[in-house]
Simulated assay, not measured.
Amino acid sequence: CRLILSRRDYTCCEAHDGNQQSELVSRALWVPATPKLLYVSPKGEKTKSRSLSGTAYIDFPVDRTEIHPDYHNNVTELGKIRATIDSVRNDSDITVTSIYLKGFASPEGTYAHNTDLARERTATIREYVLKLYDFDPSIVTFGHEPENWEGLIAWLRKSSLPHASQILEIAEDKDTDPDAREYRIRKYYPEDYKVMKSEIYPLLRCTEYKIEYNIRSYSDPKEILKVMKTQPGKLSLEEFFVAGESLETGSPEFNEVFDIAAVMYPDDEVANLNAASAAMGRGDLKTAVARLAKAGESAEADYSRGVLAVMNKDYTTAVDFFRKAAEKGLESAEEHAKVFNEYARSLEAK
């Protein structure tokens, strides 16, 4: 790594006359190659289980439990449940495993009466679903919450009612009987109560629904890439990785696979680590910084931070990260730490 010109003069009697040396190329001009980027294989999913959820605000006539699809806005609200179920039921790659409904009543009226309303109305919605679809009745289940105090509390915390803070204190007093709480709000804050009854109580009477389902596995990279273009949410991280391995490293198609994987799994450390490597491979160091911030503290993540520091010509920082990675068991990082430590010292000595 150093080129030195030496000069020695000799007489006829072989006597040595002087010794001159000149360093033509110094070590400082040597630049180590950027370390190889790492791509980590994610853990596989034994079963790809997913879920969809939402809230429907289905109206019932006062004290009634039968559904009237054309009552108020029920066409739209019932349509929410159907659309969610249809989005997975009509896909041949998906098997619906559970549909859970949870109904809520508002605090208006007695707790005992609201218990019956919440239970029976939710049971009616369950029957509505079973009549529409040929599901095994055992996978369509329901529960109920007699009075939606949590929803009321959340609304009051953001409310501009004149006595919102006082009403909130009453609502949060779970040691007091629900009927007593509702009575105190009506008695002491009648004007606020009128607003609550018209604005928030109808929204507290709702049905939460959750559809759970399994997605079949994919092993053919070509099929995975096809699914990725239209329904990336059906893919596991392992399947994204399989597709990536089938492509030329660093190609636009290769980078796209790992970018989409990180979008679909934004909080997964491996997904972010691999997307960071893809970003560094194409020279997008800003994106790499953001991805590595969510890549965790594994040896591979520290190694990749070291590579990023090398690309930013911050060799001291690179050495620190390579050493951390080596301490965590990544053997290749130890050699990089030595190389870039020597290189950093040669630059300082220049």
Score class of each variant (00 low, 15 high):
Cys1Arg: 09
Arg2Ser: 12
Ile4Gly: 03
Cys13Tyr: 09
His16Ser: 13
Gly18Met: 08
Glu23Arg: 08
Pro32Gly: 02
Pro35Val: 03
Ser41Cys: 10
Pro42Ile: 03
Ser51Thr: 06
Ala56Phe: 00
Ala56Trp: 00
Asp59Thr: 00
Glu66Gly: 02
Asn74Leu: 13
Glu77Trp: 06
Leu78Cys: 12
Leu78Tyr: 04
Lys80His: 10
Asn90Cys: 06
Asp93Lys: 08
Thr95Ala: 07
Glu108Gln: 15
Tyr111Asn: 15
Asn114Glu: 10
Thr115His: 13
Asp116Ala: 15
Val129Asn: 11
Asp134Leu: 06
Asp136Met: 02
Pro137Arg: 09
Trp155Tyr: 15
Pro162Met: 10
Leu168Lys: 08
Ala171Cys: 12
Pro178Trp: 08
Pro178Ile: 09
Arg186Ser: 09
Tyr189Trp: 06
Asn214Thr: 14
Glu223Asn: 14
Met228Asn: 11
Lys229Ala: 15
Val242Gly: 00
Glu245Thr: 07
Glu256Arg: 09
Val257His: 02
Tyr265Met: 01
Tyr265Cys: 04
Pro266Trp: 05
Pro266Tyr: 07
Asp268Lys: 07
Asn274Cys: 08
Ala275Asp: 01
Thr287Ala: 10
Ala290Lys: 14
Arg291Pro: 02
Glu300Asn: 06
Ala301Leu: 04
Arg305Met: 11
Arg305Cys: 02
Val307Leu: 11
Ala309Asp: 13
Met311Phe: 01
Arg323Cys: 03
Lys324Val: 05
Ala325Asp: 02
Ala326Lys: 02
Gly329Ala: 12
Ser332Ile: 14
Ala337Phe: 03
Lys338Leu: 13
Glu342Gln: 13
Arg345Thr: 07
